[in-house]
Nucleic acid binder design. Sequence first.
RNA 1: GCAGCUGUGGUAUAGUCUGGUUAUUACUUGGGCCUUCCAAGCCUACAACCCGGGUUCGAAUCCCGGCAGCUGCACCA
Length: 564
Amino acid sequence: MNHDKMTNISAKRGFLWPSFEIYSGVSGFTDYGPLGASLKNNIMQKWRKQYVSGEGFYEIEGPTVMPKEVLKASGHVDNFTDPMTKCKSCGEVYRADHIIEEAIGQDVESLENSEMDKIVAENNIKCPECGGDLAKIWDYNLMFKTEIGAKGNKVGYMRPETAQGIFILFKRLERFFRGKLPFGAVQLGKAYRNEISPRQGVIRLREFTQAEAEIFLDPEDKTTPKFSQIENETLRLNSQEVQEKDLEPLEITAREALDKGIVANEMLIYQLYLARKFLNEIGIPNEALRFRQHLAGEMAHYALDCWDVEVNTDKYGWVEIIGIADRGDYDLSSHSKFSNEELYVFKEYDEPKKVKKTIVKPNLSKFGPVFKGDSPKVKQAIEEADPEEIISALENDGKYVIELDNTYEVEEELLLIEEVEEDVTGEKIIPHVIEPSFGIDRIVYSVLLHSFTETEGKDYFKFAKSVAPVQVGVYPLVKKDGLPEIATELKDTLREAGFKVEYDEGNTIGKRYARADEIGIPIAVTVDYETKDDNMVTVRDRDTEAQERIAISDLKEYLENYYK
RNA sequence: GCAGCUGUGGUAUAGUCUGGUUAUUACUUGGGCCUUCCAAGCCUACAACCCGGGUUCGAAUCCCGGCAGCUGCACCA
């Protein structure tokens, strides 16, 4: 682990570059250079392989611009904010709650803006810089705001997370998956947060890439058949208790974590395991990883349980790269409420249940004469009322009183009370959601950091084969006597076979190996004089530097095997 | 966002305090020579004073503003 050297080489060799550099840059944005973009794509492809092919989830792709309504429902419009104020004379901008805290030493975090305005007035709080008056407090929302359409009266925001795009498709997805829980949908893409002052390079961006899966499941059944396959895996858990009491992390099996109630349910544990498996396979070792449970106060109010996967870094300490939360039914309930759409799955019982219930109906032949023109609305009121309430009212007072524009007294003889038995085949349930949420940029950084290897002879990216941006280097031993021609032809053949191949003929062979190692090309193929006689080439391994002779005719198969 | 420090070819740097030649050096990179397996050597070329304004006969150098980076504080649903 060596952040400084790693970033240096990553910039030099085209992985990560600061954005808008020729205009002196803007913090919170980053460019992926040729190798960086390729590395990132490989990581995202690997992610798809695990979650889409491996778990049977499906990928969707929604807009990055969202109308205000969606983010109102998700809570981002109201809660994803900081209170700000501004000095009227010098124009300096402050966090309002901080300036108050500083002045009167009182925690005002949960107060409304109007209340804070009052405190500012009562305590005569002024600008700390120039002593000027402070303006009315407003909310600084961390979302990028925009307008939809030419009239500009439709407010939109850049999405602050990809998850909402999945939740709002729930009705469609539920039909697509034919109503059977559990099912999962994923989305990979950009999300945006207008951070006040991002630093830490690619760790905190204003525009970043997420890969999120939303797994919808039965609130009563958060088991998964996959659990039995992984129950003996050991996990390194920094539970709430471990953090509160400052203990060593737990090293326990998935089974124990479940039985002791440290992780809430099977699916959640399975997702922790899956996240770690993914990271291992792209080159981040277990020693550099840990699971950290959100503390009670830190957990979003709707989350039932939430674990971060953190990676160890020399520069930033332990950094969150994945969050895995049981969000309960919060999102679907909230969107249901705001959109007036029922977002549910119909859960059929194994056996239909016979349910006895009492129903109360108006006796229409007697209704008309009594209520005359008002009878339709009285009838409707009876039908909408709770039968239990009507019966108890009749028992207690001998009548049921309805308050509409007039008061109506309904006596028992105007009603028909029946006991009926109904077949109930199931019920509507709002699924719970377990959400693994990956910060792709941070993961790319982690892969770079943990693949970066320093040895006596060389410093290089020891990429896992599945993510290496260049797969094969092809070189003529020297630049004459027809060797470049053979090597060039070989390069073209391998490219046509689908490999990512680089060709290099300058300088000495040693220098070219060194250059290839630096960007983590796993395999080097060298054409030499003997090739002209025996049609074989030298295949060199990046890490061991071991060489073997392979026939050109077998090379494609050899590489396919290697990268399988 | 606040405070302090910093900004010279792709990278690392000298020069800045005390304004004045063609802005130093090494590596890297491109081309050439050489080269029969791990950054060798030789020739050659490309290439920089963060941006904007001010002071001055003259600014990389002094002053102001901006941008970015680093460190600490704050923020990070």
